[in-house]
Amino acid sequence: MRTAKKTIKKVSLIGLGQMGRKMARMYIDAGYEVTLWNRTLEKTREFEDVNITESAQDAIARSPFVIICVYDNSATLDILNNLADQGVLEGKTIVNLTTGGPDEALEIEKIVSAQKGNYINGAIQVAPDQMGKESTTILLSGNKKAYDEHRSTFDILGGNLKFLGEKAAASSAMDLATLTWLYGSYIGLIYGVSLGQKYGLDLEDYSRIIGEITPGFTEFFQYEIDVINRGDYSITQSPLPISIAATQRIADSFKELNVLREFPEAIKNILEQAGEKGLGNEELAAIIKVINKQV
């Protein structure tokens, strides 16, 4: 009686920064045959029982599934454009987890697709230490057939994979959208700290209250996104004039502080323009019309 030979899954990783090294360890621990390439060999020396190649070309050739995670997409494009033979991409699934913009994703997709390769663009939403957990969120988009074929290999990276469709640029666009929300919220948070310091508030109280009110505001934000999606700005939750007055108070309060005033002034100005353009009888979400220059 013959015993079926177990097929060892293979993965190649190009780029051994903190995230690249973390992913390499995860695939080694999962029993994959791992091939590594990095511009400098020094970062490969900590690894044992892996294949170390002298070129990105060789790393791509050794595995059907290739992850690129380098400093930026200029580096990704440099690697792909300088392959000795781009034909090595044929039949390969190239997963680019390098942080970059939507236009760069489309440019990389064009290179891979021209060689009959499968391209999947991704954006990791966590730090290296949060990889491989059930809550680990990774945004992915591109070749759906390749994504389904290699789903078990993707699953090693995290439990909350979000496949956003066949358009490769979608994951980068979503990454930028969520980062825009994140940094806007974070800057507002720090301005709140500054105001609290001015008036002698206990920052532990501020931190605690922020944590307590965040879930409710998250529901409100989701509701307002739905308002925009439906295109119905009838007042249901938050009349726009309330926020015009509130953002005026915020801007006024920071006039008394020795701080950069551009952020509170920008918020106030957007709401002021909404009022001036006749949106006073609409839901707060109607400010999208001002931001998108629709009025």
Rank of each mutant, 00 (worst) to 15 (best):
F65M: 07
A170D: 11
R2V: 13
K144P: 00
V290T: 10
A84F: 03
G122H: 08
V259Y: 01
V95T: 01
K198C: 01
Q222H: 12
D85C: 05
I8L: 13
K268L: 08
I120Q: 10
E283F: 05
T136R: 01
N292K: 15
A24C: 09
L106P: 03
A114Y: 05
G31W: 11
L257Y: 05
G196L: 08
K293F: 01
M131K: 02
S243E: 12
N160Q: 10
K92R: 15
L89H: 00
N118M: 08
F47K: 10
G15L: 03
A24E: 01
I209M: 14
M26A: 04
D29P: 01
N82P: 06
G91Q: 10
I190N: 07
M26V: 06
E276R: 06
S12L: 06
L13D: 04
K9P: 07
M23C: 05
E109G: 15
I68Y: 02
G280V: 01
S12T: 07
S234M: 08
F217E: 00
V11Q: 02
L13A: 02
D202G: 01
N160K: 14
A146K: 10
G216T: 12
N143K: 11
Y191T: 02
M26R: 08
A173P: 06
A59R: 03
G122D: 01
N51P: 04
A30S: 14
N292L: 13
R208T: 15
D129C: 06
A173N: 09
Q248H: 13
N229K: 15
K43N: 10
V95K: 09
G165Q: 05
D175K: 03
S12G: 10
G211W: 05
K255T: 13
K116Y: 11
L257K: 09
A170C: 11
N281Q: 12
F220N: 05
P241G: 11
M1K: 08
I52W: 03
M23G: 08
N281D: 15
M26T: 02
D85M: 07
L203C: 04
L203K: 08
A285D: 00
K293H: 13
E219A: 15
E107Q: 14
V88A: 12
L257H: 09
I68N: 04
Y186W: 14
G275W: 07
P241A: 12
L41T: 14
T214S: 14
T236I: 12
L189C: 12
I190F: 09
R230W: 00
I124W: 04
T137S: 13
L203G: 02
L260N: 15
G159Q: 02
G211V: 04
L80Y: 01
M131L: 15
V50I: 11
G100F: 03
E166A: 06
L179Y: 03
S253R: 03
T218N: 10
T7D: 11
I156M: 06
K167V: 07
R25Y: 10
N121Y: 08
